[in-house]
Amino acid sequence: MAQEVRGVIARAKGAPVEIETIVVPDPGPGEAVVRVQACGVCHTDLHYREGGINDEFPFLLGHEAAGVVESVGDGVTDLEPGDYVILNWRAVCGTCRACLRGRPWYCFSTFNASQPMTLTDGTALTPALGIGAFAEKTLVHSGQCTKVDPDAAPEAAGLLGCGIMAGIGAAVNTGNVTRGDSVAVIGCGGVGCASIAGAAIAGATKIIAVDLDERKLEWAKKFGATHTVNAKDVDVVEAVKELTGGFGADVVIEAVGRPETWKQAFYARDLAGTVVLVGVPTPDMRLEMPMIDFFSHGGSLKSSWYGDCLPSRDFPYLIDLYQQGRLDLDAFVTEKITPTQVEDAFTKMHHGDVLRSVVVF
């Protein structure tokens, strides 16, 4: 029997979010209903509200979530009611060309729930990243549920569902940071600080945080940055080179998503080094550079999709590190809020006042 819950929706481009009654159907084949315990406010949710993803309004926002499985549909054998899960937006198919080549973290045909959640008048909702977790309960594909240790606090664990995983994975999975590496991270919001944490976990010995905001540079130190560079005061490329013996960093992670900061990342790396783009650019952004520079610098230029993560592998591993005290997920939680405060959280995020606001149900 379908259930009615309260959720946060975006009706139109740029319009303030609203709290509405959401109809959540019983799970169909391969689906699960999850009672959401906590959900982080991610910049991607703001992109949805601003029409920056697509125009399939109204959206049911929220996707960085942890909760408890309430019910499952036919054919679901790896989940049962009561399982504590982190929701993910990469439910791998196992049959696409990436999966068949043994690269499921690139899965090109990920799953979402087949049935729509709706408003009470029957209007179908588009769930953010196929999740829609700014609601008391949500309907997802069972593959979007990753079981983890239930002792992990949901407000911290849920953040692995998107931004924190994207940042850690950009360092560990995409950038292949390893012991002894030098790493620079440009942009020290939630994703950038997570990249710094990932570089520290991987054993980087020099981790350089770059930002325009001294508050964010102070945050970066808490996650493992050994040096900071305020881009308002110095030339970023020269500063990174000076801190790395004049050579540049082995891996530079760009967590802003702008042409000018990507160029800084490119020129701040060592010869044959790696640039990782994890910041999300807008469709109108363009990059113009001498082609010879790409050839003469060598190395790798990579884009990181969701930290190139495999949720079934990475979420439990990172929760283990969290419980061992080796990954401070709690430090990413700037404030705990109610669903009615999501609009205010967007404003704080836009002004750089928070790492993460987390909606707690």
Rank of each mutant, 00 (worst) to 15 (best):
Q3F: 00
Q3I: 02
V5H: 01
I19P: 10
V24E: 00
G30V: 13
G30H: 12
R35A: 11
Q37N: 08
V41E: 07
E50D: 15
E50R: 13
F57P: 10
G62N: 07
E64D: 11
A65T: 14
A65K: 14
A65N: 13
A66R: 08
V76S: 01
D78I: 00
G82C: 08
D83E: 08
I86S: 06
W89V: 00
W89G: 01
T95S: 11
R101H: 13
R101G: 15
G102D: 13
R103E: 15
W105E: 14
C107W: 05
L119C: 08
T123Q: 15
I131R: 10
G132N: 09
F134T: 06
A135M: 08
K137I: 02
L139R: 02
Q144F: 02
K147W: 04
D149L: 09
L159R: 01
L159I: 03
G161S: 10
G167R: 04
G175V: 08
V177Q: 12
T178S: 15
G189D: 13
G189T: 10
V191D: 03
A194V: 07
A194R: 09
A199V: 04
A200Q: 14
G203L: 06
A204T: 11
A209W: 11
D211W: 08
D213M: 06
K216C: 03
L217C: 02
L217S: 03
G224Y: 06
T228W: 09
D233Q: 15
E242F: 01
L243A: 04
T244G: 12
F247M: 14
G248R: 04
K263C: 02
F266L: 13
A268V: 06
A268D: 07
A268L: 08
R269G: 05
D270M: 13
T274P: 10
V275I: 14
L277W: 03
T282H: 13
R286C: 04
L287H: 13
S300I: 00
W305D: 08
Y306L: 12
L318A: 05
I319R: 07
I319S: 03
D320L: 00
L321P: 01
L321W: 03
G325S: 04
L329M: 05
D330T: 06
A331C: 05
A331I: 03
K336Q: 14
Q341T: 02
D344P: 01
F346I: 11
K348I: 01
D353H: 12
V354I: 15
V358Q: 12
F361A: 12
